[in-house]
């Protein structure tokens, strides 16, 4: 059973109950009515129960006080209030939601911090402890019968847990926008009419094509055009409303001959 602090007000815990452990629970209940319970304790000993299904994949717990350490047990509770813990989590530290009231100051030279560094290894339980205690605290290995449990959890994948997010709407987070970007683009950029329910857009383009001797010099309205090896060419223009003259001119490689023609295009749009 593992617990993580999500923020100052919420914890997330998941567990994996082995069939053997479950059988112990049922033996304890001896047929009495009972329910699955997640019991969360804070460091001061206060606790709170939430009903859970013992086979659910995870649970979010709304906690009562930020800035404390929490530990959870999942187990069975009977109608008389008797409780049998089946698994215990690691400790998780919820961050504070208020500035520290401790105004004490200690200053060091960051380049002379070797002593400080050495001392930090001997630190008490507030530092690494929550990491280190992660697995020590479990009453039984949470991964008993691991491969089977893993497989079933795997198949269930991201199936819903018991909590629905109060703030699920994606805010303007400055975190790596790449994933969001690609997505918004796919959903949002379906053409110039995007953003409306029903839309229509249409545009015109003009294709000008032809051919001459492969070694001739070809211009369209004065601009040189590259010919394909067989002397043909294709140009494609956006065609706005208005009058357009396209003057096509070819000059032979010996410059002795010039041929030309002008396409006159008149384009308008009625709405």
């Amino acid at each position: 059973m593992v617990m993580m602090a999500r923020d100052p007000w919420w914890l997330f815990t998941y567990w994996d109950l082995s069939p053997e452990r479950m059988a112990e629970g049922l033996a304890w209940a001896q047929g009495r009515p009972h329910e699955g319970v997640l019991r969360v304790y804070d460091e001061a000993g206060a606790w709170q129960d939430s009903p859970v299904h013992l086979d659910q994949l995870g649970h979010y717990v709304n906690i009562w006080a930020p800035g404390r350490q929490y530990v959870a047990e999942v187990g069975l509770r009977d109608q008389q209030g008797g409780f049998l813990p089946l698994l215990r989590s690691n400790f998780a530290s919820a961050p504070p939601d208020q500035p520290s009231s401790d105004l004490g100051e200690e200053w060091v030279d960051i380049f002379g911090a070797a002593a400080l560094w050495a001392a930090s290894w001997c630190r008490g339980p507030q530092g690494l402890s929550s990491m280190d205690l992660a697995l020590l605290a479990s009453p039984s290995s949470p991964w008993g019968g691991a491969s089977e449990h893993l497989a079933s959890a795997w198949m269930a994948g991201s199936l819903a847990s018991s909590w629905s997010s109060p703030g699920a709407a994606w805010g303007a987070s400055p975190s790596s926008p790449w994933g969001a970007a690609a997505g918004q683009g796919q959903a949002g950029a379906a053409g110039p009419g995007r953003g409306r329910k029903f839309f229509l857009w249409s545009k015109t383009e003009l294709i000008l094509y032809g051919g001459t001797e492969p070694d001739a010099a070809l211009t369209v309205s004065g601009k040189p055009v590259a010919l394909r090896p067989d002397g043909t060419f294709t140009l494609r223009f956006a065609l706005p409303d208005g009058d357009l003259d396209l003057e096509v001119k070819a000059i032979s490689v010996d410059q002795a001959e010039t041929l030309g023609m002008t396409h006159q295009v008149k384009k308008g749009t009625r709405r």
Binding site: M4, R6, L57, P95, S158, S165, G167, A168
Partner: peptide, 12 residues
């Protein structure tokens, strides 16, 4: 905090 990376869409 950690909500973006720990929520019902990805906590599994």
């Amino acid at each position: 905090y950690h909500e973006v990376w720990l929520n019902p869409s990805n906590d599994w």
